[in-house]
């Protein structure tokens, strides 16, 4: 009897852990069923229209955290109401465009891909990255792609560099080092494309010792 109750306790514990893990994954997944709450700092008169956009995002299966954050950003920067709503609406459209172009993508990946899209990457190029890097998180590749394009690297060169580096090393550290080296080279006066070519020549020993890599806590 005691043996049975111990096993039941273990099963219950495992089920609880599984439920916690599933719910935490579900919270970050793209098909979240609840919209992010609007911050208290959002003025009352903006709430109905912003909530409507967030509700539309839920219906469309889009993550709402970045939309709520965009609204908060505008309010924090003391932008007028129309501008805040316009910015949130534009981001909603961009998220939707990117989502439609990419298959089965997580919320964090969609946010990162949208950053790259806003910087000037086409949806076709985003798809190329997704197809070239199967079975891995695309948060950092899309994020780094966004920074390269934002810095003026031609989109095709940026995509090639990101895919090549991501395939070469799967720990994302070399991608972050690539972005860091590009910034350093541009600050030294090199044009973006030359800066990228030089940044791609970083040896692994330097990447591993690179203090600048943004490491996950």
């Amino acid at each position: 009897m005691r043996y049975l109750s111990e096993n039941l306790l273990k099963i219950a514990l495992l089920l609880t852990i599984a439920l916690v893990i599933e719910s935490s994954i579900g919270a970050g997944a793209l098909h979240a069923q609840h919209s992010a709450a609007l911050d208290k700092r959002i003025p009352t008169e903006l709430r109905p229209v912003l909530q409507a956009i967030l509700d539309s995002a839920v219906t469309a299966g889009l993550p709402t955290a970045s939309l709520a954050d965009k609204a908060l950003e505008g309010v924090s920067k003391k932008a007028d109401g129309d501008r805040v709503v316009s910015a949130v609406r534009a981001l909603y459209q961009q998220l939707k465009t990117v989502q439609q172009a990419l298959d089965s993508i997580s919320a964090a990946e969609l946010d990162a891909a949208t950053v790259a899209y806003r910087a000037g990457t086409t949806t076709a190029m985003l798809k190329t990255v997704q197809n070239s890097l199967p079975k891995r998180s695309l948060v950092v590749p899309y994020g780094v792609l966004g920074t390269l394009v934002q810095r003026g690297v031609p989109v095709s060169d940026a995509v090639n560099a990101v895919v090549k580096e991501a395939k070469r090393r799967k720990d994302d550290q070399s991608l972050l080092a690539l972005s860091t080296a590009l910034e350093r080279n541009i600050a030294a006066g090199l044009p973006a494309r030359t800066a990228l070519i030089r940044a791609q020549k970083i040896p692994d020993a330097v990447i591993d010792n690179e203090r600048g890599g943004t490491r996950r806590p």
Binding site: G74, V144, D172
Partner: peptide, 19 residues
């Protein structure tokens, strides 16, 4: 040290990628 851009509200910001 970060790629910088201008947001819709007229301010500059940097893009920080965390792995």
């Amino acid at each position: 040290g970060l790629a910088r851009a201008q947001d819709e509200f007229g301010e500059n910001y940097g893009l920080l990628v965390v792995r």
